[in-house]
Design a protein around this nucleic acid. Sequence first.
DNA 1: GGCGATTTTGACAATCGTTCTCACTTTGAG
DNA 2: CTCAAAGTGAGAACGATTGTCAAAATCGCC
Lengths: 134, 134
Amino acid sequence: MSGSSTRRPTRQQAAVAALLERSSDFTSAQTLHARLRESGDPIGLATVYRALQSMVEAGTVDVLRTDDGEAVYRACSTHHHHHLVCRSCGRTVEVEGPAVESWADRVAGEHGFSDVTHTLEIFGTCAACATTST
Amino acid sequence: MSGSSTRRPTRQQAAVAALLERSSDFTSAQTLHARLRESGDPIGLATVYRALQSMVEAGTVDVLRTDDGEAVYRACSTHHHHHLVCRSCGRTVEVEGPAVESWADRVAGEHGFSDVTHTLEIFGTCAACATTST
DNA sequence: GGCGATTTTGACAATCGTTCTCACTTTGAG
DNA sequence: CTCAAAGTGAGAACGATTGTCAAAATCGCC
């Protein structure tokens, strides 16, 4: 029953997946929905949410919450990694840190925790935005 | 300099702060509000939110988002640190990782990012819960 | 201690993202 | 092609959070 996340392939789901592939940064469901409509691709908001949910469950899409609680999505390679996000323009860079992984596991282990996972996001102002502002 | 967030000390704000001090785990605004009322401490929900906001700005309280987008708060020491949270019982341990801090700064710098901050939460099952289950 | 100006509070409405409902459409198998 | 199951879409429902505005509390000052 666990593999029940298999959904019937449909045009709408493909559209969401495709747009997500093309988007380089984390994007909200609302924004994705708006863009799809602009592209002349009729689709319901609820469907966008459903498609995103199943993709997240399937592990093909990453989701994280902005500071104001909005969920943002991004197509990601399936291997474990983290994100470096520009808080001004939203540009995202995938980064890896083996040292961090092992550190987290070790610290958790020292406190008797098992089945350890972690979330790590780095925020900053990218070079372009730093130059622009003032 | 950043003293602009100075609010007039009131009984309500003190109550929120005190309850937060006594709470060992991350707690939602709604829960805090309910507990305060149970304690016979009349207070409005909006006031709880406002008190939490100013405490977060003042840096005396940490806030993070649960997976379903709800904001949860916890009184914390003001120095930078991270959390190790049991996904079963919610027990929280504060941890520090100087190596992670510098790693994050370095990686961000390499990509041209400035004014860097980061969030890191570690989740796992604590020893007590691991024993209990199964 | 009392006064006035200013801030905070509190009840409720408004907002916003997300989920639910349910009738209609599409898909996939035979 | 035909049927049953699953997906879709419009809008209602929901829950957390924020805004509004009159009433109440606080601070500085006399």
